[in-house]
């Protein structure tokens, strides 16, 4: 009996440890196999991978691809999304933890969490067919009145095309809002009671309690949550593919350009993955995206410093 029990222990321990190791291994394998598949295409590449704006893979003997435009579009959409989502998420998290009565705070929080449950293809659908026509006049107004400012100049899309980076950024902002809110809410709720009570005892108003106690305690968590949101925005695929129109023109600083992000370019070419060398070009773009999200998520974890789990 003792022997079987001991064997049971070691088998069970082995199984659980093995599953943990499998998770670690899967990340290593993702990096490894993407790299293995990317190297032959990178060697055959006739253009500079980091500075070229081309992405032509039609002729396997003359591959010319670079990630500069992809990087620019990905950063423009993601940063715009952050700029819109961060203040709103801060407000929502403060509202749910510091303002809303306990009884309604939970259902309200559930409503925000539901935003994360909407599939991204539905966001894309709504974005291009419903939201984009509504945003178009805003687009046009910004171009007409603030066009001298590089961000708002007329982009590389014909006038009247709805699928701009601006629209894509707004959709992404909605998609990452629940992520940032969830993390910020968790951290704000952990603010030590005596910090809050000390501030109140000094006669602080509710807003002063927040600036003196809640925000200093929760700042790192809020930033970590925003970085998790950024990671999500960098890799969002289908919503961006549906919303942002393709464009052959040069990328400018303008938010009204079209174009592809890393993820949307890969998805757009997915049906043509037949020959190894052209496919490898897209896989190398995927590798860059993997490294980007890895770094952003790792930084988020470091910034959070153990206050946030997940």
């Amino acid at each position: 009996m003792w022997a079987s029990s001991r064997r049971g222990e070691s088998v069970f321990r082995g199984l659980t440890t093995g599953s943990g190791v499998l998770v670690v291994a899967s990340i290593a394998l993702i990096g490894l196999f993407l790299l293995i598949q990317a190297i032959p295409s990178l060697l055959a590449n006739q253009a500079n991978f980091f500075t070229s704006t081309e992405f032509s893979t039609g002729d396997p003997d003359n591959l010319r691809f670079g990630i500069l435009d992809l990087l620019v579009v990905t950063l423009k959409t993601s940063i715009l999304a952050l700029v819109i989502a961060m203040p709103i998420a801060l407000g929502v998290a403060l509202f749910l933890t510091q303002y809303a009565p306990k009884r309604v705070a939970r259902p309200f929080a559930y409503v925000i969490d539901l935003l994360a449950a909407v599939p991204s293809i539905v966001y894309g659908l709504w974005g291009i067919l419903v939201l984009a026509p509504v945003i178009l006049p805003v687009n046009q107004w910004l171009v007409d009145n603030l066009g001298w400012f590089p961000l708002f100049s007329q982009g590389n899309l014909p006038v009247g095309v709805r699928g701009t980076i601006f629209t894509g950024g707004v959709i992404l902002a909605v998609m990452i809002l629940p992520i940032i809110t969830a993390v910020a809410r968790e951290v704000f709720a952990q603010t030590p009671r005596f910090h809050i009570e000390a501030a109140k005892a000094l006669g602080a108003t509710r807003w002063e309690v927040i600036t003196m106690a809640v925000l200093p305690y929760g700042r790192s968590g809020y930033i970590a949550g925003s970085m998790l949101g950024l990671g999500r925005a960098l890799g969002e695929t289908i919503a961006i593919l549906l919303v942002i129109s393709a464009s052959t023109g040069m990328q400018t600083l303008s938010l009204f350009d079209g174009g592809y992000t890393f993820a949307s370019l890969i998805a757009s070419a997915a049906s043509e993955f037949s020959q190894p060398l052209p496919t490898g070009a897209y896989i190398s773009a995927g590798l860059v995206l993997f490294v980007l999200t890895f770094v952003v998520n790792a930084l988020a974890r470091v910034v959070a410093g153990g206050k946030v789990n997940g």
Binding site: L29, I30, F33, L34, G235, L289, A298
Partner: peptide, 21 residues
């Protein structure tokens, strides 16, 4: 740490990995 990283891996990258392997 890797669980956190895995939760941040974009779905398109997961798909590319399965495709590559």
């Amino acid at each position: 740490f890797m669980v956190d990283i895995l939760s941040g891996v974009p779905s398109i990258v997961a798909a590319l990995f399965i495709f590559a392997l």
